[in-house]
């Protein structure tokens, strides 16, 4: 089962290493991880996407809570939440594909953020399915490079 966990941590050096070392040391998997400061500059949020059965997830949340630098752990699984990821895609742009690329970008409400002689760089935001579908459609045109932010999430309401 895939779980998205939001973790509030102290915004100080070494915290990312602590969390990462907890996951690697105990053999937990990290599918995606993103970190950023919150409104309170002393606190950061980590959004961690991980996989495991109930027992493993119980251990992951407990072990995270046990870290002194961790202030709060929220497993969003089973709750209403929104999840987004941004991806930058550099795709080959040839005369015969340009129009298609722009149309697809439009449908996915993406933006062309850079145009080169042989490529477009496109920004798209969405949940996992949307990003996956978008990349599938661009694949035949020749994706040269991608960069993703990792997922961020918030509980609804």
């Amino acid at each position: 089962m895939r779980h998205t966990i939001n973790v509030l941590v102290e915004n100080e050096f070494g915290v990312l290493a602590r969390v990462a070392s907890l996951f690697s040391g105990r053999g937990f998997n990290i599918e995606s991880l993103s970190v950023a400061e919150t409104l309170d500059p002393t606190i950061s949020t980590m959004t961690i996407v991980t996989r495991g059965d109930d027992q493993i997830l119980e251990q992951i949340t407990k072990q995270l809570n046990k870290l002194v630098c961790v202030i709060k752990v929220m497993d969003l699984e089973g709750k209403e939440y929104v999840e987004r990821e941004m991806v930058l895609v550099k795709v080959a742009a040839k005369a015969e594909t340009r129009a298609d690329i722009l149309r697809i970008t439009d449908i996915f409400r993406g933006k062309v953020v850079d145009i080169g002689p042989k490529s477009y760089t496109i920004e798209v935001t969405g949940d996992e399915d949307k990003i996956k579908a978008f990349l599938e459609l661009l694949k035949p045109m020749g994706i040269k490079e991608i960069s993703r932010t990792g997922r961020v999430a918030l509980a609804r309401g």
Partner: peptide
């Protein structure tokens, strides 16, 4: 040493 000892301390500080 903070990095080396991280997994075997309850907490550590530089």
């Amino acid at each position: 040493i903070v990095g080396i000892a991280r997994p075997c301390t309850k907490n550590n500080y530089l």
